[in-house]
């Protein structure tokens, strides 16, 4: 690796000049470079070189790899694909290899050593870049999912004391938690006594989802609000009974309209009636 570095340093000016020409032909990179002043560019180059030297000569790779990862993250966030990097590495390999053969044609063992060093170094760098890309993309997707989740579960007040919560889309543990948390906050803020949770738009209700929903209902009851779950399709009813996840203790109805009728009845007759209902459900 050391030998590779020495060779690279000797040829650096020529290699870098050629590489710069390659970079300028890649629109994404050219744009990044144009956005920086010559002084900034020079500064970055100097820093990159120092870090690279530290890695290859002193064996201290971490600062260099972290710097690479940070760059990759920036590129990933700007939406520049990973493949944009590859021509750069290829050009670098070809360029250096040519110069190497020219310089040490008489010493093939040396050429091999330096080539090995170069490949090892480049592979490591590409690996880190790739991982950092992946991670940055994953985070980006995670943030977007979070944003969508927050948008996707509105809680509406139909009238005093009555909230409607239409749940649309897949419900995983995270989303169930987010839904439950916002429902509980809303129950407190609106002093709600009744909640209709409509799950018509939830494509899959397995035992895990059923369990999450039951937990949300229980938490709401602890705060003084009764939850009616509506939108149990024939398929979901069959599935829930078959897997033995019937959400016991939760009032469920076929569709949203039945839920609203039930709410009318409960609120119209006053709260004592709703409690009578609960008491009946408990003794049953």
């Amino acid at each position: 690796m050391r030998e590779y570095w020495d060779f690279y340093e000797k040829n650096r000016d020529a290699v870098d000049a050629t590489l710069r020409a390659v970079v300028e032909k890649i629109p994404a990179f050219a744009q990044v470079m144009r956005s920086m002043s010559p002084a900034q560019l020079a500064e970055q180059e100097k820093r990159g070189l120092a870090l690279q030297r530290q890695a290859l000569v002193e064996g201290n790779w971490r600062p260099y790899l972290e710097d690479l990862a940070a760059q990759a993250e920036n590129f990933a966030r700007s939406g520049i694909p990973f493949s944009t990097w590859l021509p750069l590495f290829t050009s670098f390999r070809v360029l250096l290899r040519g110069r190497l053969f020219e310089a040490y044609a008489a010493d093939p063992a040396r050429v091999a050593r330096i080539l090995d060093g170069m490949n090892h170094y480049l592979d490591r760098a590409v690996g880190v870049l790739g991982d950092a890309y992946d991670l940055a993309k994953e985070r980006l997707i995670g943030q977007q999912q979070e944003a969508i989740r927050e948008l996707s579960t509105p809680i509406l007040q139909l009238r005093e004391g009555l909230l409607i919560l239409p749940v649309v889309g897949l419900v995983d543990t995270r989303r169930a938690r987010q839904i439950t948390e916002s429902l509980l906050l809303r129950i407190r803020d609106r002093r709600a006594e009744l909640v209709i949770m409509d799950i018509t738009g939830v494509p899959i209700v397995d035992s895990k989802v059923a369990n999450h929903l039951a937990q949300a209902c229980e938490a709401a009851r602890l705060m003084g609000a009764q939850v009616i779950v509506t939108g149990i399709s024939p398929e979901i009813a069959q599935a829930l009974v078959t897997i033995g996840a019937e959400m016991r203790g939760v009032r469920t109805l076929a569709d949203l309209q039945s839920g609203i009728e039930e709410a009318d009845r409960l609120q119209g007759f006053g709260r004592s009636k709703s409690l009578a209902h609960e008491a009946a459900a408990e003794t049953a």
Partner: peptide
């Protein structure tokens, strides 16, 4: 019962029957 407390109680499987 505060929202966070209700949430934790439900997670623990605790009710107030």
């Amino acid at each position: 019962i505060q929202p966070g407390v209700a949430f934790a109680m439900a997670q623990l499987g605790l009710g107030l029957a």
